[in-house]
Simulated assay, not measured.
Amino acid sequence: MHAMNARRLLYALAALSVLWLGWAMLQPPPPLPDHGQPGAAGYRLAGHTITPLEPFQLEARVLGREDYRFDRGAQVSPTDLALGWGPMADPQVLARIAISQGNRWYRWRVEEFPIPRREIETHSANMHLIPANAAVADALAAVRPGQRIALRGQLVEVKGDDGFRWLSSRTREDTGDGACELIWVEQLSRLD
């Protein structure tokens, strides 16, 4: 009888752990504080120095969204958006492309190319977003796949006080590891 009670307790604890993890993953990311203007060394955020590299702005369609809580980058960038512009914002083209996200990557797959491969590669990207203030964080929390958005900010380099380093791509000609944009988002709005 005692072994049965211990087993029930173990099952109950396991079920509670799964429920807690599921609940935690469904919660929106916590809002980030306002950060003010950049100083000589850039912005400071949660033990990181964020250095602007160059201005960035884009109008695009949201191809996918992935929120992060537990990876190292989540301390500064809680959300990635896969974005498409030009031919990759066309719903007829997108209907023929399967899109997924995970582990800070954006992936696409086609049965048959609706546009040349290189156009897919140079007109879409996974972008790691760092909200510059609470208003941007709120706007980002409301963004959903399929929407058209405009964003403006800075491509940045992030250096953590612990040695962590994350650097934005500065070209749309690259693909693969290191090709994502890391953006300090100063303004974000929906276009539709």
Rank of each mutant, 00 (worst) to 15 (best):
G178S: 05
H123Y: 10
A6K: 10
A3D: 15
Q154R: 04
V185G: 04
G36M: 03
V156L: 05
R152Q: 15
R72Q: 10
A137F: 00
A137R: 00
S77V: 03
M25F: 08
D177T: 14
V156S: 08
R61C: 08
R104E: 05
R118H: 12
P38E: 09
A141D: 14
R96G: 13
L13W: 13
A139G: 08
G153R: 01
M88K: 09
R148P: 00
R109T: 10
A95I: 01
A179F: 05
M127A: 06
S100W: 08
L45H: 15
T122S: 10
A137V: 00
A98T: 15
F113Y: 15
L16G: 03
D161C: 02
R144N: 11
A89W: 10
T175S: 15
L32Q: 05
R65H: 04
L16S: 11
E181L: 06
V158T: 10
I50V: 14
D80C: 08
A95Y: 00
L53P: 04
E59Y: 01
E112W: 00
Y106G: 04
L191P: 01
Y68N: 00
L188Y: 02
Y68Q: 03
Y11E: 15
A82K: 03
T51R: 14
R44D: 02
T171F: 12
P145N: 08
D192N: 13
A40H: 00
S124F: 06
A24D: 02
A132L: 06
F56Q: 11
A60Y: 10
Q57Y: 02
N133I: 08
I99Y: 05
R69Q: 04
C180Q: 02
R69C: 01
L10T: 14
E111M: 04
A3W: 11
R117F: 12
H35E: 15
P31C: 05
R117E: 15
R165E: 06
V76Q: 02
Q75T: 11
